[in-house]
Amino acid sequence: MSPTLLFFRRLFRRKLVLAAALVLLSLLLGALLAPWVTPFKPDAMRLARRLKPPSDVNWLGTDEFGRDILSRIIFGARASLGIGAAVVAVSMTIGTTIGLFAGYFRRLDAPVMRVVDAMMALPDILLAIFLVAVLGASAFNVVFALSIVYTPRVVRVVRASTLVVRELPFVEAARALGVSTRRILGVHVLLNVASPVLVQATFIFAYAVLAEAGLSFLGAGVPPETPTWGTMIASGQQFADDAFWVVLFPGIAIVLAALSLQVLGDGLRDMLDPKLRKAL
């Protein structure tokens, strides 16, 4: 059996992890197929039906402009999850590269880690707000700011794993064979730090979804006319007293996405930790 297959079989033995993966998968599918699965256009205003509670027409009710909340949540998933995924992609790429170098080459280690520690000393959300405030509110800048915030975490994890893998006999064996340093780093070390990085990726994805919502809610995120889960809550909060569904359902979407990512990450971590795996 290939390790990949074995991996998924082990991972999904725990039902909660499987459920989380399914939730995530349906959110992602909804986001990808939004134009085809939504009952209404997300920006179709029908003022006659403003702030209507959930019904068989609008399953999750309507907002202050009569827009269908379900459709907006599904479209919002595109922005929210898209920003999250972009942050993961950027911070993983940069963080893994820096982490591999810092962990493998002793001389780079101290200076790189000093910068990383300094950045991690700042509270995540404050740093992000500051960066967006300086750069201006746009989806691109939110991705940029959150990537800067989360890259140091990745660097730390990759560097720590690299320090361990670097000392393993198969790395020494590759050196003895005359394998190039580039291949040692890019194949031997990278393949073997992939597991903790993957775990970190799911956590960062969850943090990024939450942070995007937080930034948007504070008005330091994407412009309010783009439907994201954060902007939906931000613009709906003034009606929340009379129309709870305006904020409740986007909130549930955020919680579902973040929670299922966390559960998936926990599942991955438990499975990849040999000590815990034995106990299962």
């Binding site: 390790p3 198969f170 020494e172 031997h188 073997n192």
Partner: peptide
């Protein structure tokens, strides 16, 4: 090498 487990890249 000594350790037939650790001296081969498991991946």
């Amino acid at each position: 090498f000594q350790d037939p487990f650790a001296s081969l890249n498991p991946r």
